[in-house]
Simulated scan of single mutants.
Amino acid sequence: MDTNKVSLVTGASKGLGLTLVKKLLTAGYKVAATSRDLNTLTSEAGDRSEQFLPLETTLTDDGSVAHAISTIVNTFGTIDVVVNNAGYGQLGTLEELSDDEARKNFEVNVFGSLNVIRNVMPYFRKNKSGAFFNISSIAGFLGTFPGWGVYNATKFAVAGFTEALSAEVKSLGITATVVYLGYFKTNFLLKGSLRLAEKSIAEYKEARELETIHQEQIPGNQPGDPEKAASVLIQVAESDQRPLHLFLGTDALNMAKNKIETLKEQLTANEQLSKSTDFV
């Protein structure tokens, strides 16, 4: 494994991001990590060193991101791997969430990653190499989770722009992978990583039931091991054949397979209707 590679991990002060940073550092890689709170990041991952560069960065501010990227390159000389991990969950039905709540979720989960990609690409293009890992969710492939519509939309967006990015950079020696996470035992469902709608409407029975499940039953019982997920990400980053789509967790894999089967059934059932719209 080429431990001279420089990795950038966003949203690195907790959850999978923090686990990945620690594992990369232990393996001897050079790591740059961003967080909105530098003190929290350094208290969790360690102080700045020859191997580690913690950065306080506002991902929704393109200027802040540009400064972070230039600092990384000036410090380590290059960037080889980017893990766009920063994001948060937003609960609330489409009616309940305000325009401000919805836009804030998109600002972090979508536009934050786009800011990173835009500022990293000049260096990747110059090096004619590089790997992006954009962290989505099984909710970015399967959207039938009541009360998660806006969050789902942000993660579908991550999948969509990653697919486009992979095609745009193919001839440049750069890869892009969308990572669909299942339920991993991190703090994602805890306060600070999961926000509730400011306005709640009791009539949304299914959404309220799923909200309760995510607050009271799932936390602490997630089947996924973040240590193993981090190891897989490192393994794939070192591979010469990086996939465009990577599902992590048996739960995510099974939900994806079930959706694919449903799609196949509906494609077959409606094939004649689909074809009937062509000019004859």
Rank of each mutant, 00 (worst) to 15 (best):
T42L: 05
S43I: 00
S43N: 14
R48F: 02
L53A: 10
P54M: 00
E56V: 06
T57I: 10
T58H: 14
T58P: 00
L59E: 09
T60F: 04
T60Q: 11
D62E: 14
S64N: 08
S64E: 07
A68Q: 09
V73Y: 02
N74C: 13
F76T: 08
F76D: 05
F76Q: 10
I79T: 01
I79Q: 00
I79C: 04
I79G: 00
D80W: 07
D80R: 03
V82G: 01
A86E: 04
A86S: 09
A86T: 01
A86Q: 01
G89L: 14
G89W: 13
L91W: 14
L91H: 12
G92V: 08
T93L: 03
T93H: 03
L94K: 00
L94C: 10
L94N: 10
E96Q: 11
L97W: 03
L97E: 02
L97K: 09
S98K: 03
A102R: 13
R103I: 11
N105F: 04
F106T: 01
E107P: 01
E107F: 00
N109K: 11
F111Y: 15
F111P: 09
L114Q: 11
N115D: 05
V116A: 03
I117A: 04
R118S: 09
R118M: 00
R118P: 01
N119H: 14
V120K: 05
P122I: 07
K126Q: 14
K126S: 14
N127P: 00
K128T: 10
G130Q: 00
G130E: 09
A131R: 07
F133K: 02
F133P: 04
S136P: 07
S136W: 09
G140I: 02
L142E: 12
L142A: 12
L142N: 14
G149H: 01
T154Q: 08
A159V: 10
T162H: 08
T162C: 10
A167H: 12
E168D: 15
S171I: 12
S171V: 13
I174D: 10
T175P: 06
A176H: 08
A176L: 10
